[in-house]
């Protein structure tokens, strides 16, 4: 069970934080200085292979980062094993749904 615990989780949380920091600044810069005029241009921007790839990586980083953070909070405060397991599973399911949703959007943008 060392896949995502202990040092690896701690390290991943930091690496994803760095990626998300850089990605957020880049996206913020784009939306401030080159804001897309309409939905079609936004779709074209996100559908660009490089942007799509960076965003997909951003989604994965965000999900991993959020999972480790949520898991930490739950481990700290939710102690009864059954409740903890339930809350952990619910959180993981919620994050997975968000991830699939984000990938569906990216895929649609890439197709068009």
């Amino acid at each position: 069970m060392r896949l995502l615990s202990g040092q690896r989780a701690w390290l991943l949380q930091r690496i994803t934080a760095v990626y998300l920091g850089v990605y957020s600044v880049l996206m913020l810069g784009y939306f401030i200085f080159f804001a897309p005029a309409d939905h079609a241009r936004w779709v074209a921007f996100v559908g660009h292979p490089l942007v799509g790839l960076l965003t997909a990586l951003g989604v994965v980083a965000l999900l991993l980062h959020a999972w480790i953070g949520l898991r930490d909070v739950i481990m700290d405060y939710v102690h009864p094993f059954g409740i903890r397991l339930t809350v952990l599973i619910l959180s993981a399911t919620g994050l997975l749904i968000l991830g699939l949703w984000a990938f569906a959007i990216l895929f649609k943008a890439w197709l068009s």
């Binding site: 060392r2 615990s5 202990g6 040092q7 989780a9 701690w10 898991r71 930490d72 481990m75 700290d76």
Partner: peptide, 12 residues
């Protein structure tokens, strides 16, 4: 021994 989710990495 310290490389698990609890013994060391509960430190925030």
């Amino acid at each position: 021994r310290l490389d698990d989710a609890w013994k060391l990495y509960r430190c925030h």
